[in-house]
Design a protein around this nucleic acid. Sequence first.
DNA 1: GCACAGCGCACC
DNA 2: AAACGGTGCGCTGTGC
Length: 600
Amino acid sequence: MRVIDHPIQGQLVRIHIVEAEDDLPDYESFVLANQDLLAHDSETTGLDWWNAGIGTFRARLWQFGNAHESFVVPVEKGHVFRNAVRWALRTTRRLIAHNGTFDLHVAEVCLGLPMEELAPKSWDTKLFAHLCDPRPVKEQGPGLRLEELTKHYICPTLADAVKGSMAAVAKELKVKKDDVWPIVPIDHYGFNLYAGMDPILAFRLFEMLKPKIPVRSRKAGLISWEHRLAHITAKIERRGYLLDSAYAQAKSAELREQQLKWEEVARQEGVDNVNSTAQIIAALHERGIKLTKKTKKGNLSVDDDVLSAVDIPLTKAIIHAKKAMKWRATWFDRALRGRDSEGRVHASINSCQARSARMTISGAVPAQTLPAGDSYVRHCFLADPGHVTVSSDYGNMELRVLAAFSGDPTMLDAFRRGLDLHQITADAAGVDRKAGKGTNFTVCFGGGWKAIVEQYGVSENEAKKAVKAFWETYPGVKRLADRLQREARRTGYIYTGTGRRIPVDRNRIYAALNYFIQSTSRDITARALIELDRHGYTEYVRLPIHDELVFSFPEDRAVELADETARIMEMTVRGLLIPVDAEIGAQSWGSVLDLEASKH
DNA sequence: GCACAGCGCACC
DNA sequence: AAACGGTGCGCTGTGC
């Protein structure tokens, strides 16, 4: 057994490195003495846990610890060590981990411990951190990553030292940071320090964060609620989504051809690299074209809007080449790269991520950003063999949430009687429906007339009229917005109906209404996932996308299952129904879009 | 050679 | 008085 003593704010903590079987009795004593509550973490060769079966992914170390002491076990050294870890995970009554969903995947595929066994007794410090303060570092928050939280809540220098230790290892081994994990020697000091410190920090964070969770959030049961949700999204990740590899490969090749063709045109027109804004600006200036639109940082912008307005072969070539590249790389190639041995792709679902607690979905299926306008990309995602895709979405979710919580009579009446809310806004302002719709959405986002002009191409005059009319037509919304802004100004926070506390920046008080609407909507979708899980439907869920759930149902029961799940998803909020519409497609996700399009 | 900021763009 | 909210990712160019 090797020992590393390392200071945390002047106090030494001890990391025990298990090297041989002889070291296991001490480790076992430690686990037994701490079996009521232990933090754990795993170090692996990468993040692609779904490749454990084909041997390209494996667990290397597993660590257990409390606030003062940890043990690092070399699971890759053989079954004796794997068994020792499996035993500890089973014996411990309560497990703490940071972003523990990942470790649950690893425990399942590398140790054969079902997620269903460990999840109910697991606490995730990332969820605790989010309930305390969801803001990322770049928005003056503590962040949600372990290093960031360590820096904010425990010790800034320690966070840098631990993070730096792996950076130093990468440098020493002359590889990129991301490539160090599979090759770093199992007994490397920096690696062991990094690994052994993790559970100690997670344990301390847990102790630190638990009392900081707002009383209202705790009383509302948000802690267990978020954990249940995280375990459901982990099961969705585990199931994965069947990829139509032949289709994806064909489309990737097709787009590559288009990309090369248009890049060649751009080259002949004087732009070697279509992704270089600098080259594009230079080429346009050479042609005497004046650019005026600026980026956020004040530089000249050459986005799609700007380029589309200049009708010459060069801009056309740039637009087409960039789009072909983006679609190929971001959708098809990414999905193909992420396939497991059965041709399925596994999204990474952060169940509680944005300031509003909205989920984010990244990795091989960036579900939330797949092109929605046409079915070209979504065709590559398939329901299981013999299944069909069903997409169930909430109708006007955010506006209904706004109506329900504001209690505004006009808005409530419109939804109850099935009237056209966008037209109501439009009529009140004396503008067309497009401007009315733009106003309804933009106000929900906290925007003003300028934003409506920008995004919906409405005239300045009309936009101003529409915003004024909005607030006059829906006085209940005004009252809700005012109340939330007052609360935010007074306390720095708003609370949602589910007991969630959301920080509101002083210089963006107007965002309070949007945070409320967005977060409440997220919680309605989250509630649906929890209820569906309770009824045993999670195996059919492929993805949650804000106000929509995508299912794979057996074809012969699709109608029945679509209906049952839609009824479970539906929710009445303060007397107003948030309805769900289930669209049944063929096997591919894209087919749902095609069928919808053919109806209209 | 790598990390990071900035940009542009896909979505709700 | 007015105020556009929330994301992830591929690429370039810059700075270390």
